[in-house]
Design a protein around this nucleic acid. Structure first.
Lengths: 236, 236
DNA sequence: CGAACCATTGACCATGATCAATGATTGTGG
DNA sequence: CCACAATCATTGATCATGGTCAATGGTTCG
């Protein structure tokens, strides 16, 4: 069981949350790599909704959450961003959400002005930005499909698989570090913390995951998790 | 009451569905205006998910729905597009949804290849496309906020207000034509047709809307509708 | 006119939200 | 370093919303 989970691909999890990541080189990556490192402590903001100053960022290390505050005071987390992720291509025209460090974060950034200058000189730069933006839009649309119609357990299973897919290749196998609070997960999936908690407990009881330490999640049965994420919940 | 509804602005409906519309001139508009007209009958597709051929379209008249089929066979409608709307800026890299005529539709289109050629000659063209895409992303994110956390009545009220805002300025006052079926509305809002129907009935009973003819909706109390869309449902 | 499709309404039920109590974990100042 | 506070997580009881199943009524179109 462990083995099957370890070797399983995520290709048939149709609607996941995979966010915009660029690993390969490219004009944007090159420019960013030449920017100085900045450090942020937990709860510091990269930017706030409505800020005038705008940048493109690349997370070098740590975890960032993007969120919007709803008019009733609730928080909708748009996405979580991990090392290697580029963000801000979508805010060059308008800043319509906030970005906040969850953990200690190291990042590099490029101002909008610099980006615009680059775009004029280097055509590749603009088209890479365009691609980033397209990818972002596609991801956001998948997110709607997941969030809008699915049960708590389906959302949660998809979320865990998504987290897992990010840590694949970084060693650690089926063990993944959960730096997020239940509130973060709830605000992302559009659930309450109680519902998140209850469903994690159920997953634990059914030996699909292990949560011996609150912030360490071990996937025991990845296949089952994928079934759940895809809606096969008959035996749930 | 009628008067107040008539003069009310929609500015404080924070999370609505307003989609990408370009009314003013611009490089893209200019080019599109020079393309030949095409006509589609109801249920004809502009394109299907996965199609290789890609285009930018402008709806000249009629109504189009964009949708994705979920793996369980359900349909998530991404958005409805109306005359003047431009669509397809997001599909230049990948076609990840389908577009279908709801009514008789007239449109103009520009191939991806032509768009790419234009982008090289005319820098404004590329940056207009970029803006269209950004706008699209912002809209999609608002949509998540509305869809993810809100009650059926809040969704429905926001949806009606959005429809209304599109017909403002076209005469007709508070009367709007509902070319969509209940199934369309349900698939867009992530509800069932029964829930849509029941809530429309309640709105009717409370004299907030009138639905004497199935496809003609009259807003009787726009203020109340806005309150509902914003979550003031105490008296519901 | 009849068939197919669409909409409404009712009865019932499952999911997840809310309210509430308790336990665990983390961080801070003495 | 410990103790206390604050935050976070778990669990239970209850309830409301909206989904499902089912029956009926309207509309539209060949």
């Amino acid at each position: 069981m462990l083995a099957s989970a370890e070797t399983a691909t995520l290709s048939n999890v149709h609607a996941s949350f995979a966010s915009t990541r660029r690993r390969s080189g490219g004009a944007i990556q090159d420019v960013l790599s030449r920017q100085p490192l900045r450090r942020l402590a937990p709860h510091e903001h990269l930017f706030h909704e409505g800020d005038r100053e705008r940048n493109i960022f690349r997370i070098e290390c740590g975890l960032v959450r993007l969120y919007k505050l709803l008019h009733d005071g609730r928080r909708q987390i748009i996405s979580f961003r991990y090392p290697g992720d580029v963000l801000g291509s979508d805010t060059l025209t308008e800043q319509c959400y906030s970005a906040e460090a969850v953990t200690d974060v190291t990042l590099r950034s490029l101002s909008r002005e610099a980006a615009h200058r680059r775009m004029k000189d280097e055509p590749a730069f603009g088209s890479e930005l365009f691609d980033l933006l397209s990818e972002e839009l596609a991801t956001t649309r998948s997110q709607i499909s997941v969030l809008n119609r699915r049960s708590a357990i389906e959302k949660l299973a998809a979320f865990i698989l998504d987290l897992w897919s990010r840590q694949v290749g970084k060693g650690g196998g089926n063990r993944l570090t959960l730096e997020l609070t239940r509130t973060d997960i709830a605000d992302f999936l559009g659930l309450t913390i109680e519902t998140v908690s209850r469903n994690l407990t159920k997953l634990r009881q059914r030996r699909i995951i292990d949560l011996s330490h609150i912030h360490t999640l071990v996937i025991l049965d990845g296949e089952r998790l994928k079934e759940l994420a895809n809606g096969d919940c008959e035996t749930w």
